[in-house]
């Protein structure tokens, strides 16, 4: 994939392969993401889309090929991995907030311990981001006292507090009740409008149409098709994409 205006990509995947035992889960993945680009990854379950974005911050290890994030190549060198993780925020399907810490402590933990910010500064930043995800009044509560939608917004704010260059979203709305999906998507749309580089695995095709610069369709561990959303939805090139879209857009 090439980037239209010729700038250096911030995420590069070159011929990436991965196996779970005998199972070939990622097959020759090539993907470039430019700074400020919004990529939405879709595909049937088990197609490897979560595994692919989890490789970008090394929650999963790739076995062949190259992954270069923000100019740093991912190797088994712990220093490199930690450096990349500082620049890459991640939002999970299951939120994964720290239940023993208050919302505010969830947000300030990494800035204080990883970025070595003074507590006061970290708290100011945290309150700013809580404001942005529209739950400033929940700062002193514990995650277990919030609704799913609120928890996911806290999780987004927690990642943003590290001021990452890239945000990864791994099915951020799949564990939410229907009435809470919108509040999370709204936050993500705002984030996209601010120019954040985003790679987002999701089934929310409305969100994809609004936000994505590039659609990526994966099936059985490979990237089958990619392109701008307009073309992708109106005119899918491969049969597999057409079948998938007809299944999820049918109702």
């Amino acid at each position: 994939m090439t980037i239209s205006d010729g700038q250096v990509p911030i995420i590069e995947l070159r011929g990436v392969d991965k196996w779970y035992g005998e199972f070939h889960v990622l097959r020759n993945i090539n993907l470039d993401v430019g700074k400020g680009e919004r990529v939405v990854v879709c595909g049937p379950s088990g197609s490897g889309k979560s595994t692919m974005i989890r490789c970008i911050n090394r929650l999963e290890e790739h076995q062949r090929g190259q992954i270069i994030v923000a100019g740093i190549e991912l190797t088994s060198d712990v220093k490199n991995i930690e450096a990349i993780r500082r620049e890459v925020g991640m939002v999970f399907q299951q939120f994964n907030l720290f239940p023993h810490l208050t919302v505010l402590e969830n947000l300030t933990l990494a800035p204080i311990w990883v970025r070595k910010l003074p507590r006061k500064e970290a708290e100011e930043t945290a309150r700013l981001y809580l404001e942005r995800v529209r739950i400033p009044e929940q700062a002193e509560k514990y995650p277990g006292q919030l609704s799913g939608g609120q928890q996911q917004r806290v999780a987004i704010a927690r990642s943003l507090c590290m001021k990452p260059e890239i945000m990864l979203f791994d099915e951020p709305t799949s564990a939410l009740d229907p009435e809470m999906i919108k509040e999370v998507l709204d936050v993500m749309i705002e984030l996209a409008e601010d120019g954040m580089t985003m790679v987002c695995v999701t089934h929310e095709m409305g969100f994809a149409r609004t936000v994505a610069d590039t659609m990526v369709f994966m099936d059985r561990g490979e990237i089958v098709e990619h392109g701008p959303p307009k073309e992708f939805f109106a005119n899918p090139k491969s049969d597999r994409t057409r079948l998938f879209l007809s299944q999820i857009l049918a109702h």
Partner: peptide, 13 residues
């Protein structure tokens, strides 16, 4: 849960 480890890792701890 594994998610707690992953969240901490993803934050760079």
């Amino acid at each position: 849960p594994k998610g707690q480890h992953e969240a901490a890792d993803a934050l760079g701890l």
